[in-house]
Amino acid sequence: MKRLSDQEKHRLISSLGEHIAHTHALGITVEKVEGEALTLRLPYAENLVGDPATGVLHGGVITVLLDQTLGVAALACDSLAPSIAPTLDLRIDHLRVAPPGKDILATASVYRTTRRVLFTQGIAYWDSPDNTIARATGTWLRLDEVDTTWTGNIERKEA
């Protein structure tokens, strides 16, 4: 997504999000784009709880949010053409749980690109990055050909 302003990226990533059924159903939205760093917001909801006794969100919901944030950060990487590459792996450390009722934010960026592999990292937190609840690293395989299906969807929708 070379040469796009933060605002243009914000708009493109928001419309991309509408095509991703699960994260759209969870109400995940773009919070902020600052250069290579992307922040998404997951609103707290009762149906996303993992421990009904405490109301704490399911660990898997944090996995979904981080997978999405790291993946879209890879997609929006400045040095590359937009393409969806398969995820190779995702690793998450669950450092603490957020208080029930709090929205969760996740910020991610690409920290290394090679010809074949993208390395990404990110954190999930509530209110501020000081309240980090999880830390993730993920690797994506770069495909030879650019997958224009996604950007094509965006253009068709806006046309």
């Binding site: 991703i20 699960h22 979904v64 981080l66 997978d67 999405q68």
Partner: peptide, 8 residues
């Protein structure tokens, strides 16, 4: 299916 869903 969303990769995160498989993880969850």
């Amino acid at each position: 299916i969303h990769g995160g869903v498989i993880g969850a």
